[in-house]
Simulated assay, not measured.
Amino acid sequence: MKHYLSLIFCLLSTLALLTSCRKEREEKAVDRMDQYTTTKAYPSKFTDESLEKWKQQVPEIQKISIKSTLDGKEQPALFYTSETTGKRPLLVMLHSWSSEYLQIKSIPFALWSKEYDWAFIHPNYRGKFDNPEAVASDLAIQDIVDAVNYAKQHADIDTSRIYILGSSGGAMTALVAAGRHPEIWAGVVAWVPVFDLVDWYAFSQYYPHRDYNRHVVAACGGEPLPGTAAAAECMRRSPVTYIHNAKDVPIFLAHGTNDVLVPPDHSIRGYNLLANPADTIAQKDIDYILKEQAIPEGMEGATNRDKYFGAKDPKVVFERESANVRLVLFVGVHDMAYNPGLLWLNEQQKKMPPAAPPVAGH
């Protein structure tokens, strides 16, 4: 018995020694990643996936499995945290519509997390958006919440600095997650998001060669035509249904004026629902932007710069901030720039409720 107690004591002492030797995390000033500009410029296709590529770039990345608290299924994800001690931000990065959690174009976000000692998680949230379990379903949103909780269990997360970022379908899901769980997020970045699935389905009818409408039909149980159950299901998965719940969450919306995959009015509609009424964008100006792929002359907010966009980033032609939402329109197509969203997120921190006073006598 004494032998076992001595062994336990030895193990505990060794663990304590190892813990005491770990370096404390240090907050440091962030800077641009000049080697990365946009996802269009990144050397891979949008749908390219490879664990080997991830391991080459971020050797410390872990492939993990998270059990869904909704249906019990194991869901894969990629996770990174360092060996330092102390609280750190968490970046939840969401893959886009036609990819899964091994999407190569997300690697720069993990590299940023490694450079600045953030935790990083890249959940699968039911994979490609071609089935009923995906496309911002209840299961997919819960997978994201479960991913946050996994990170909190395996790293010392600063709960005032939990961020979510995505583009296209990932941006759509990030906005749904913001509206359904606003209590979690300190900042949300949505590049070229689908804001309204029913509206986007109607728009995409002009492009029958694309697979997206077939995916929407598969996910929502039919064509989302007016008055149908499929239309109701699509609305249940759309940010427009929930975004009003996220008025207290800082949200960054960015869209290319030349985007013919998801038109920029999707981001503008999101902005209008979150902004103060006096700051909303008039329908006539939205119509002009859609038709001319440019900003109306003299429109308030027209600009040729934005403090988060650098010389290598797409040219900004409009930016407006109101309440907790920031809208940026840039000259470009269906794309995402790496640096602006990360630089903006780094400045966001949620106001935490004050700690409860100690109970008398304790």
Rank of each mutant, 00 (worst) to 15 (best):
K87T: 12
L51R: 02
S44L: 06
K55D: 02
L51A: 03
Q35K: 14
S68V: 05
T39S: 11
L91D: 04
Q75W: 04
S65R: 13
S82R: 09
P89R: 08
S44K: 01
M33Y: 03
M93G: 04
Q75L: 14
A41L: 11
T69D: 13
Q35W: 01
I66T: 10
P89I: 03
L51N: 03
T81K: 15
Q62H: 07
D48K: 02
P59V: 01
F46P: 03
T39G: 06
A41V: 00
K53W: 01
Y80G: 10
V58Q: 04
M33I: 03
S68A: 11
T69R: 15
E60I: 01
T38H: 03
S44A: 15
E52Q: 14
R88K: 15
S50R: 04
W54Q: 08
L51Y: 14
D31G: 12
E74P: 11
S65D: 13
K45S: 12
D71I: 06
Q56S: 09
V58L: 12
L90F: 05
V58K: 02
I61Q: 05
E60M: 10
P89D: 03
D34G: 05
P76S: 13
K40R: 14
E49V: 01
Q35T: 11
M93T: 04
G86F: 06
S50C: 03
Y42N: 08
T37H: 08
P43I: 03
I64F: 08
S68T: 11
E52G: 01
A77P: 12
M33T: 02
V58D: 01
Q75V: 15
L90Y: 03
T47E: 13
S44I: 00
P89E: 05
D31L: 05
L90I: 07
P76E: 13
I61D: 04
R88Y: 01
T39M: 14
G72E: 12
K45Q: 10
M33L: 14
K55V: 05
T47C: 01
V58H: 06
T81M: 11
F79H: 12
F46Q: 10
W54D: 06
K53P: 00
S50L: 04
K73E: 15
E83V: 12
K53T: 08
T38R: 02
I64M: 07
G72H: 10
K45N: 12
K67P: 07
K45I: 02
K55R: 15
T47Y: 07
E49T: 07
Q75P: 06
D31I: 02
T37Y: 01
I64C: 09
Y42L: 05
S50H: 02
W54Y: 11
